[in-house]
Simulated assay, not measured.
Amino acid sequence: MTEPRPDPTRRTHLGMRPGELAGKWYAKYWNPVMAPLPEHIREAIDRGPQAPPLCLELDDVGALEEAGYQDLENGYSLFDDGSMHIATVTRMPRVSPEMVDWWFWWHASETQRYKLWYPRAHLYAQWPGGAGERSAPYRERYIGGTSFVDEYVGHVPGRLAIRFVRPCSMGFSEDRLDPQEATAVCATVGFSDAPLDWGHLVHHVRRVDGGAEMRSRFWMGGGHVSPRGEVSLSGELGKVAEGVRNLGDAQARAMVVHCSQEMNHLAEFLPDIFDEFKRSEHE
């Protein structure tokens, strides 16, 4: 099977150009003014890199289903192999896990929807072939698909392929992921213009009083770098791989900021846009 590819002629820009939201029912949710970073995230960045033993290992990610918290919930760590681990908590008033599953299905098929999420960093989105069957539960509509997105992390632009996988493939018990109580968005992160993966992400969302709590985790670089398909890490692809094997402090800090800002901004409008979608059954 040929690997899906993004549109090579895509044009990207930050923000919305005049007329870009014309006729879009969701235009009212565009808000380029973003709130400051939460205090707990600023404190985590000030602490700098944390000891690797405090981090949740990728093989143990299913522990996020348990009550309570991990040793490192906000912050980052750098490892000897050049990889980094990122952890953030986002508190989401009035949000449910089901809303998050809906968002990961709905936003990916149109650039303007993707820009609502993070006006200061998101550039482009494409979902080849369309995202999921509308009759399926929201989580089933994005699992197995690949979202091509262009975005900035800090000052660095990236062209990414985010391939959504089943939560059970990363160690979650799917019978415990009732969309009214909890969900886990799980994906492999790679490049969209090169057959190379270089990380994994999880957003575990659970019900709390007054809404939901998202606990995000990223494992990137170092030993997480691998080719997609039957290709070798030689020549130009080898050079690309070397560029993401050794991720440093600046990139880790930028990733903490990026995740926190985009998820806090999403939490501001997600309950209302989801409610309008459900009431009107918009496309």
Rank of each mutant, 00 (worst) to 15 (best):
L160G: 02
N74E: 03
I86N: 01
L270E: 02
H200I: 10
G243Q: 13
E174F: 12
S173L: 10
M170E: 04
D80A: 15
S147N: 14
E236K: 14
R228W: 04
G243R: 13
G222A: 11
A87K: 01
P32V: 09
R113N: 07
R166N: 08
L201S: 11
P157W: 05
L64F: 09
D101H: 06
L201K: 03
F164N: 01
G19E: 10
W25M: 10
P53L: 10
Q50G: 07
V149M: 04
D272K: 14
H200A: 11
G190F: 03
S232L: 13
Q70F: 05
H258N: 07
S226A: 15
Y69A: 14
D175H: 10
R245N: 10
E236T: 14
E242F: 07
K239G: 12
P227G: 09
T88A: 09
I41F: 00
Q180V: 13
Y152F: 15
R166P: 02
M84C: 13
V205D: 02
R207T: 12
L177R: 04
G68A: 08
P93Q: 07
W106G: 00
D209V: 09
V231A: 09
D7R: 14
W127F: 13
Y152Q: 03
H282W: 15
E174C: 14
W127Q: 08
V61D: 00
L72E: 04
S135G: 15
P53S: 09
E140P: 03
F218I: 04
S192H: 04
D81V: 06
D249F: 01
G145M: 05
G82D: 06
E133P: 08
T9E: 15
G238I: 06
A182Q: 11
G19K: 10
P38K: 02
L56A: 05
L177V: 06
G68Q: 07
M220W: 01
N264Q: 13
W102T: 00
D80H: 13
R10H: 14
R163N: 09
A121Y: 00
V205G: 02
I143Y: 03
S173K: 12
F269N: 07
E133Y: 13
T111K: 02
P179L: 06
P52I: 06
H203R: 05
D178E: 13
V61K: 00
L37S: 05
S77P: 05
T2S: 11
R217Q: 08
L237K: 10
R5L: 13
H122S: 08
A35M: 06
W103F: 13
L201W: 01
C168A: 15
L21P: 07
V156P: 00
H155L: 08
W117H: 02
W219G: 01
H13V: 06
I273W: 00
N74Q: 04
G130T: 09
T183K: 11
G210C: 05
R139M: 09
G68F: 07
L72I: 07
P4M: 08
H204T: 07
V244E: 02
L64S: 03
E276V: 05
L270Q: 01
L14P: 03
Y138S: 07
D193S: 12
F191T: 07
E20D: 15
V202E: 00
L78R: 08
P53D: 12
M214C: 12
F172P: 01
V33T: 15
D275H: 12
